Amino acid sequence: MSATNSYKKVGLYFGTFNPIHIGHLVIANHLAEYSDMNEVWFVVTPQSPFKTKKTMLDNNQRLEMVFRATEDYTTLKPSNIEFGLPQPNYTVNTLAYLEEKYPDYEFALIMGEDNLKSFHKWKNYDVILQNHDIYVYPRISGGTTETRFNDHSRIHFINAPVMEISSTFIRNAIKEGKNVRPLLPYPVWKYLDEMNFYKK
C-alpha cells in the first residue's frame, strides 16, 4: 500500500534494545519491505524507575544506539515516545497517545510468536485488537505456536527470517571480552566500544 498525502501505516516495534542488534534490524526491515507498512518505528522502552537494572543502559544511550543503527534506513526510525508517558507503560495507552498525536497515521504492532502467546494478559488487549493490526514474526521456541488468536483477522503471521540473536547473549559476550562486532550494526558496535558499555 503506497502512502497517499500524509497517510502512513506505521509498525511499532517495542523493546529495550539493550543493545539493538542485527536481528532487530533484519526483522524490522523485512516488515517494512514485505508488508503494507510504510515505516517501522523502534519504540525504546524506558527503564522503570521502580526496577533499575545494572545491565540496562540509560534511556538516552539506548535511544542513541537505535538512532545510529537506523540512520541509513529511510523506513526505519527511532522513537522515544514512551519516555514522557506515565510509568509503568502500557501499550494500549501508548497507542492512544500516538493516535491523538498523529491522526493521519495508522499504527500496527510488531511482536514475536512468544509474545503472542501471552497477549491475552496485556492490559485491554481486546481494545488493541479491535483497533490495530498485529504482525507476528517467527521465533524458535519449544511447544506449540497455536494461540487463541491464530485465526483472528487482525493477526498477520509474517514469514520473516528467524533471528535468535539476543541482547543478553551480546552483553554477556562483551563482558567476557568476546568479539561481537558481526552481531551489531557497525555504528552501534563502535559506540559501545568507545563508551566501554557492558564490559563490567
Rank of each mutant, 00 (worst) to 15 (best):
E71F: 01
M56Y: 07
K101C: 10
W122K: 03
I155T: 05
V162E: 14
V26E: 09
P161Q: 11
I155C: 04
M195H: 01
N18G: 04
H120F: 13
L31A: 00
L63N: 01
Y34S: 14
Y137E: 04
Y7T: 11
M163C: 03
K54M: 07
L184Q: 07
E113A: 12
D114K: 06
L184F: 07
S141Q: 09
V26A: 13
Q130D: 15
V26H: 07
T74V: 15
K77G: 08
T4V: 11
L12K: 10
L85Q: 09
T168F: 09
Y137P: 04
E39K: 08
P49Q: 10
H132F: 03
I165D: 00
F42E: 06
K77Q: 10
F17L: 01
R181P: 02
F67L: 12
Y73G: 07
E194W: 05
E106R: 10
Y186P: 00
E164V: 14
V66K: 09
K123N: 14
P185F: 06
R68H: 10
F107N: 01
V44T: 07
G112L: 03
H30E: 04
K9E: 08
Y191W: 00
I20F: 09
K53T: 10
Y125L: 01
V10L: 07
N38C: 11
I27H: 09
E106V: 15
G15N: 08
Q87G: 05
S166P: 12
I22V: 15
K117Y: 01
L57N: 00
E71T: 08
N179E: 14
G11N: 10
P46D: 12
I27E: 11
E194Q: 12
T144P: 04
